[in-house]
C-alpha cells in the first residue's frame, strides 16, 4: 500500500521533472529539473530493495548533473543565462516525435504481459549484481578499471596548461 503510493508519487515526479526540462527558460533550472527526474528514478529502485543500484543512481546523477550544468552553460550562446532560452528546437516536430515515442513505449509496457517470475531475490543483491556483471572476470575488470583511471588522469595532466602561477614548474609551457 505505502510502496504503491510511493511508486506512483515518484513516477509522477519523474515525469514532471522530465517535462519541466523543456518548459523552464533557464539552463540551470533545466539541468536540475532533469536531476529531480533522475532522483525520483533512483528512489524507485529503493522500493524494490535494490539499495545499491538506487543509491548509486542518486550518487552518480548528482555528480553528473553538476558537471553537466557547467558544460551546458559554458556552451550556451548566452552563458550569462540572463536571456531566456529554450531546450526545444523545431517545437512542433519535437512534440510529435515525443508523443509517438511515449505512446508506443507506454503501449508496449501495458500491452505485453510481464514474464512469469523466475527464482527468488538474492539475500544480498549488491553481491549478486557484482557477480553477474563481473563473474570470474573480476581480476581483469579491476586491472582495466585502474588502467582507465590512470589514462584519464594522465591525459588531463598532459593536456592542462599550468596557468599563470606555474612558471618554473616542469609542465608549464
Amino acid at each position: 500500500m505505502i510502496a504503491g503510493i510511493a511508486f506512483w508519487a515518484l513516477a509522477a515526479l519523474a515525469v514532471a521533472g522530465g517535462v519541466a526540462v523543456f518548459v523552464v527558460d533557464s539552463m540551470a533550472r533545466a539541468t536540475f529539473a532533469l536531476l529531480v527526474s533522475f532522483l525520483a528514478v533512483g528512489l524507485t529502485f529503493l522500493l524494490i530493495d535494490l539499495q545499491y543500484l538506487g543509491v548509486l543512481v542518486i550518487l552518480m546523477m548528482i555528480m553528473e548533473m553538476c558537471v553537466m550544468a557547467v558544460f551546458m552553460i559554458m556552451f550556451m550562446m548566452n552563458p550569462g543565462g540572463l536571456m531566456p532560452m529554450t531546450m526545444v528546437h523545431n517545437p512542433r516536430g519535437a512534440a510529435l516525435i515525443a508523443a509517438v515515442v511515449f505512446v508506443s513505449l507506454a503501449a508496449g509496457a501495458l500491452a505485453v504481459p510481464p514474464p512469469p517470475r523466475r527464482g527468488a531475490p538474492p539475500a544480498d543483491p549488491a553481491r549478486a549484481l557484482g557477480l553477474s556483471i563481473m563473474g570470474d572476470k573480476m581480476l581483469v575488470m579491476m586491472i582495466i578499471g585502474v588502467a582507465i583511471l590512470a589514462t584519464m588522469i594522465a591525459s588531463v595532466v598532459l593536456a592542462v596548461h599550468g596557468g599563470r602561477y606555474a612558471a618554473g614548474r616542469s609542465r608549464s609551457r
Binding site: V55, L56, L59, D124, A126
Partner: peptide, 9 residues
Amino acid sequence: AVGVVWFNA
C-alpha cells in the same frame, strides 16, 4: 545495507 554508499551520495 549500503550505508557507506548512502553517506557518500
